[in-house]
C-alpha cells in the first residue's frame, strides 16, 4: 500500500514535474513553483506558464538509510542503497524537493551547482512514473 495520487492528478502535473513549468502571477509577477491555485503573494489566481531552466544549487539534503524509504521507493533502496534527497534552490528563486542522483553523498555540499534530469521514479498501477531528479552540474 503506497501513498497515492490519482493518475489524472499525476498527469495534470506533467508540465511541472518534467518540464519544470512554474506559474508567473499575472498580477504581481511572482514566480510560483510548484504551482498552486492561488498566488501566495497577492492571492490572485491567474498565471502564465514560465518554464524554469533546471539549474540550481543544493539548499539542504539528507541521506535516507536502508529500509527507510517510502514504500514506492523500497525496491530502489533495497537495490541501490541509501537514498539522497534534497531541497534544491532553483536559479529563478523557487525551491523544490527532489532526489539527488549520480552523486556520492560524501561529496554533497550546501551551495553546490545542480541541474535537472528526467529519471524513473517508481511504478504504480502499471504506469511508470517519471520525474525530475538533480545531478551535480559538472557532469556531462
Amino acid at each position: 500500500m503506497s501513498a497515492y495520487i490519482s493518475l489524472p492528478m499525476f498527469g495534470a502535473g506533467t508540465g511541472q514535474r518534467l518540464r519544470l513549468e512554474a506559474g508567473r502571477c499575472r498580477s504581481c509577477a511572482a514566480l510560483v513553483y510548484p504551482q498552486r491555485p492561488q498566488c501566495p503573494g497577492c492571492g490572485d489566481d491567474a498565471f502564465d506558464t514560465a518554464p524554469l531552466s533546471g539549474t540550481g544549487t543544493l539548499y539542504t539534503y539528507t541521506v535516507i538509510a536502508g529500509g527507510g524509504a517510502p514504500a514506492e521507493f523500497d525496491d530502489q533502496q533495497t537495490m541501490t542503497g541509501p537514498l539522497t534527497v534534497g531541497v534544491v534552490a532553483l536559479t529563478e528563486g523557487p525551491h523544490v524537493i527532489a532526489q539527488i542522483a549520480d552523486a556520492d553523498p560524501e561529496t554533497l555540499e550546501i551551495g553546490m551547482p545542480l541541474r535537472a534530469v528526467v529519471r524513473r521514479l517508481f511504478d504504480q498501477e502499471g504506469v511508470v512514473r517519471y520525474g525530475t531528479k538533480f545531478v551535480p552540474a559538472a557532469d556531462a
Binding site: Q76, T80, A101, V118, R119, R120, L121, Y130, K133
Partner: peptide, 9 residues
Amino acid sequence: CAYDEDAVT
C-alpha cells in the same frame, strides 16, 4: 543503466 534510468530517460 542505473536503477532510475531506462530507454525513455
